[in-house]
Design a protein around this nucleic acid. Structure first.
Lengths: 194, 194, 194, 194
DNA sequence: GCTTAACCGAGACGGTACGTCTCGTCTTATC
DNA sequence: GATAAGACGAGACGTACCGTCTCGGTTAAGC
């Protein structure tokens, strides 16, 4: 019976964690552009090779350090499309509007968009959990008869994510408690009805 | 009697234009990150100082080369809020979803967001024309009784701009003819009515 | 009574040979500087530790792989000092002017000279066999009355070795068949008499 | 009439000198292998580019810093070949057996020998002044009838230089006052006559 | 036949140097 | 004083080796 075990000395889990932690700290302290691989390695007490062995470059490392959390929460199910969208939007706010995300996202998205290899992963990297939930939410809404036909999930999701990113991440508007509700309201019932 | 005329040799207007043109070309050819001040100067047949004398850095230069067009078109006035918003959204698409803008915006917005001095100018730099129009549109809609109370202009504008930027600029979705109409529809009448 | 036998698994003789062979090949193919321990280990199908267990570093390994041949030939005895020196010089040419030696010697001597621990072994490592022979040759020449007093063996040997190394090893002069005879002639009878 | 003057800011002579001085000091303090371009730049208070703008790499820089002195002394003319060779040999000792040369030469010659582009320059770089003098010395000796036929200048020069390098530079033998005279004696009158 | 200890291939580890690139400033001679 | 050219100090980039270490596994000698 062959083993799956890779040959050679196994990678040290603590090295991985030290790099990820140092990355997170550097981003919070000095922003995305002010964070260099050298500085991360130095702060983590690690050689540069230990980083390049695991990640191809800064974008992938920062992405994993800040955004690769597996989303395990339950899918919203409030009984109405408006309520479900509001909860999902709140999740987007929670993901995109944290101090660390605000510090990293503009530069990180720019690097992802600039590299052809990363560009294809943009949606799956940053919106995958939200998208799966949104599909389910709209399926249920369709079953209830709330909406007719096929909803444009990607466009609506991009609208919500873009709104959060632009409003809080770029423009730096204070993240008011009602933001998610207002955004959800806009896309579900429209401006005119408020 | 003092003259406004600066002492010494006046700046050459063609130098300015050569720099702006070279910047535009470089951005289209090599993207934002692949465009260096050195390369712009070289392509424009100009010294680096001629650039730094006019702009503090790459972000300001690229911004002026690609986005500082004065918007002189008439404010939309279709008679309905929905129609006006649709036209305004189309203007946003025209501005944010061109090939040059797609190539420059992610990196440019990242640089603006990273620099405290530029950060404060984000809204005025990229959304100023649209914002003035939107205020007028909503004022008229309020006068017609279409909406009640004060509309949250900035949030709605960020939503529209964020949607365009995220959907086309980052995710690379095709810029379809109906995009502006669909987006305007989402924010004015909501998802449910489609 | 303790045995000299080391505990544990004995070293594999084939590992040793594979390393030495790979070293020789790498030196011939890529030169001294272009030969890394990593590459030797890889070519030999061996782990790096198998090398470092046997040699402290690249200089010692390359030295053993290329120069540690035991010299078992007979001491020259032609009846005249000139004849004996000619034969001994030929042996130096044979040792220093081979393709492998030419590829390795400059870098190898530099590493030996740079490391204090190796520096003391320079003469014994590279000139030991020739020196022993030379002492005998000069003893016989003194007994025959060919020379008077104590000959400066080291200086003469360094002159011969330096000449071979400089002329062929560094300057890359073609190794003509008469080289050894000419050199021996120079140091025994002087320039003027040719 | 066009000027030969290069465009742009001229290179600062003091930068050049600072680099050369720092190189000399580093070599004396830490040897050839222990001298990095980074450390030279740092000690000279200079950016790395200022070095790479002037020299292709460490070998060329160190060569210029330590050996590129123009030899302006008069050609020896003592009236005898032996006397002239003795003086020329003394010049070789003066060049090759200084502390700085001893620290740099082994590694420097190895780097020159390893690089095809530098290899061709070995003789002209390190032996040019001595060779021109030797040709003249031998010409005069021929005119005086001291020697017959064509002397093998390169071989004799390599022998002398190799002897000095090997004896003092590599083996670390003390550089005695009589060294040059002894070497010259060996090559001119042979071992036997001493 | 079990234990023990050094060997083995593989490759991760913290460091260090490399040579290239870009940044924004500065220093020339020329216009 | 603006200009084109390009030198300048600084420092990040990603690559290559260094010599050590840590795995799972192998191979003999000594009990």
């Amino acid at each position: 019976m062959a083993t799956d075990r890779a040959a050679g000395r196994p990678r040290d889990r603590r090295t991985h964690e030290a790099i990820v932690s140092a990355t997170e700290e550097m981003i919070m302290l000095h922003g995305y552009a002010g964070t260099s691989i050298n500085a991360i390695a130095s702060r983590a007490g690690v050689g540069k090779d230990a980083i390049y062995r695991r990640w191809p470059g800064k974008p992938e490392l920062v992405y994993e350090a800040l955004f690769a959390r597996v989303d395990t929460g339950p899918v919203p199910d409030t009984g109405t499309l408006a309520g479900d969208v509001a909860q999902l939007t709140q999740a987007l706010v929670d993901e995109f509007a944290t101090p660390a995300a605000t510090a990293a996202l503009p530069g990180l998205l720019a690097d992802f968009a600039a590299d052809p290899a990363l560009r294809t992963r943009l949606r799956s990297a940053f919106l995958a959990p939200a998208r799966a939930r949104m599909v389910e939410i709209f399926d249920r809404a369709g079953a209830r008869g709330e909406i007719a036909g096929t909803a444009q999930v990607d466009l609506i999701l991009d609208t919500l994510a873009g709104a959060v990113f632009f409003h809080v991440g770029l423009m730096g508007e204070p993240r008011t408690a009602e933001l998610a509700a207002q955004l959800a309201d806009i896309v579900t019932t429209g401006i005119g009805t408020r």
